[in-house]
Write a protein that binds this DNA or RNA. Structure first.
Lengths: 335, 335
DNA sequence: TACTTTTATGTAAGCGTTTCCCTTTACTTA
DNA sequence: TAAGTAAAGGGAAACGCTTACATAAAAGTA
């Protein structure tokens, strides 16, 4: 570590033979600096290889030009892609992104939220259901409500929040309609996450089945945990339950992949004997054999919209509180 | 937005009837504060719900207690998991993590690097080959060499850097030996990324084939791009080339999955006609049918070690410059 | 010409912390 | 008892920037 004296705005001012105010002005592209002076200053900056300290700037401005992204699990391809899209978009409009992976624990969330605020972020975007419990969530967020934030892939029953969500209702509707068209009647739904969208999809399933006049019984919906193993386990349970079915909709591709695996092991042919639909259009869905029909929920658009929404909130403009994006059914070999 | 006056250390000092110096002392657990005073101050802090500004603190301390993680592509499960592990570990030892997804362009990298420095990070960890070109990389990093940094999943030919890498040589060795044991002689390698580890793996392949006395010709190594489609394309190329082979090692699972797909379409049975090995033990590898034999490169350990290494560098202690972790072969159905 | 306005620049006061350097008080110790 | 030491806490400078205010020069304007 070479002890390198950090050069500051005074050094630049001295070299350029002007005041720090002037340097600051050229730094921030303020008007009323003569071309000649501007040139001198820029030269000095280049010569000294000077970079303004974001921290000092943050102190006086009361904010750093950054926004925090709080993600429950960056390991989920879906969230990872959304986060990437946000990052790109933010970068585009001059913001830096601080990505935090909370793992979903309430304690972690609170700590990270606090840290982001202390760090002077201009806004916060939460990806996914940040807290497990919605009440908790509402309370928690109200504590930080003085900093603009938007919820992505999630929505909570509080009227002071902004969210952009995927239209789960529509996504599931596409699945059910597609299956019905293919002649299926006995359709099962596997819920694999206790999150906002998990609940939404389940509700959407019931509603759409009813709407299309398809049978829905107490053996229409099964629960498991999101993973390959979870998929295997739930299929075993389904088989053991004696439920009638010719198609299964899973809440996520990886769970669907596990289910597919178990189904094939049990002697079922997919899609001949049973059709399968996954969710999220993750890389895994394309690796399955047969390749999974799945729902793409437009992670890029989600990310972009979230950022746009946050921007308007930051700028204090009026805007709608809820943005909904329409997912798309990707039909492949499993149906 | 409620205009909430941010309360500061002066407010606390006033309420607790002490000086700001004392408040600062209890904040930082410094000695020589009487229990009585400490209690008073803590009470005031609680009463006002005061949180010290990380920015102001950063300004005087010359650093915020954060480290930057520069990742080429957070969308790659491998890197995502490493980043998560780092984040957890950093959080553990009291650091905040700023995760940046650069997309790999030189321009982006430079900008992000600069931003991190300006933000006062204590250190930087780069995941993956940050720059495409190694020379560039060396130059670039030397420009930022006054802030401690470590390279993860990458290593460059400069003697002032610290890296933790996966022992690619060993990983590929495991693959080749495993294949040889299974009776394979004509083994192909598909390189799918122009990165540090891509090059390493290719070199390791050649070396191990030679060491084990297996044939290596100008049709032993093929190139493609990392993706499902890339896998399909390269298999078509292999088939068209007339190369002899009974096994293929891919540089990544997703490419292997594409290759598997193409192979099956072409009428090959896996593993009977041809064995396949992927790399990275990603979720996709388990979704394939047959499930892919693959190499797990210990993302958690990589993450943890990177952080530990960075910590010792930050603390200025002597340490080894290169840490190498040993990957593990996960044998599944495709071999 | 004498005035008002505009433009270009400098001065210095913050922003919210930490910490160096004092002072005061209390306690030892010979 | 007097001098010395340690503990507790305060005052104020410093960190590197932005910007309100002040000032001076240049340019209009009647």
């Amino acid at each position: 570590m070479i002890a390198k004296k950090k050069i500051n705005i005074y050094d630049v001012a001295r070299i350029a033979n002007v005041s720090t105010a002037t340097v600051s002005r050229v730094l921030n592209n303020k008007s009323s600096v003569s071309p000649e002076t501007r040139r001198k200053v820029q030269e000095a900056i280049k010569q000294l290889n000077y970079r303004p300290s974001a921290i000092a700037r943050g102190l006086v401005l009361k904010h750093t030009k950054t926004v925090g992204i709080l993600a429950t699990d960056i390991t989920a391809p879906n969230y990872a892609r959304t986060a990437c899209a946000m990052e790109r978009e933010l970068f585009q409009i001059g913001y830096n992104a601080i990505l935090c992976n909370t793992g979903g624990s309430i304690e972690n969330n609170k700590t990270y939220l606090q840290m982001l605020v202390n760090l002077g972020v201009c806004g916060i975007i939460c990806i996914g259901s940040v807290f497990k419990n919605t009440l908790q969530e509402t309370l928690m967020l109200s504590e930080f409500s003085h900093v603009p934030f938007v919820l992505s892939h999630c929505q909570i029953p509080a009227d002071n929040t902004y969210s952009v969500v995927i239209d789960e209702m529509h996504g599931v509707q596409l699945c059910v309609e597609h299956l019905k068209e293919k002649g299926h009647k006995d359709i099962l739904y596997v819920k694999d996450a206790d999150t906002y969208s998990g609940e939404r999809k389940k509700a959407a399933f019931k509603e759409n089945m009813a709407r299309l006049g398809l049978p829905i019984t107490d053996k229409s919906i099964f629960n498991t945990y999101r993973s390959f193993e979870g998929g295997i386990a739930v299929v075993k349970e389904i088989l053991a339950s004696g439920a009638r079915f010719s198609a299964i909709i899973f809440g996520d591709d990886i769970t669907a992949a596990g289910g597919l695996f178990a189904l094939k092991k049990a002697g079922y042919k997919v899609p001949q004997d049973v059709a399968i639909i996954g969710y999220n259009n993750s890389p895994s869905s394309i690796c399955c054999d047969p390749q999974l029909t799945t729902v793409d929920n437009k992670t890029d658009i989600m990310g972009n919209l979230s950022v746009k929404l946050l921007q308007t909130v930051i700028e204090g403009k009026e805007t709608t509180r809820l943005l909904s994006v329409t997912p798309e059914l990707i039909v492949r070999e499993s149906t």
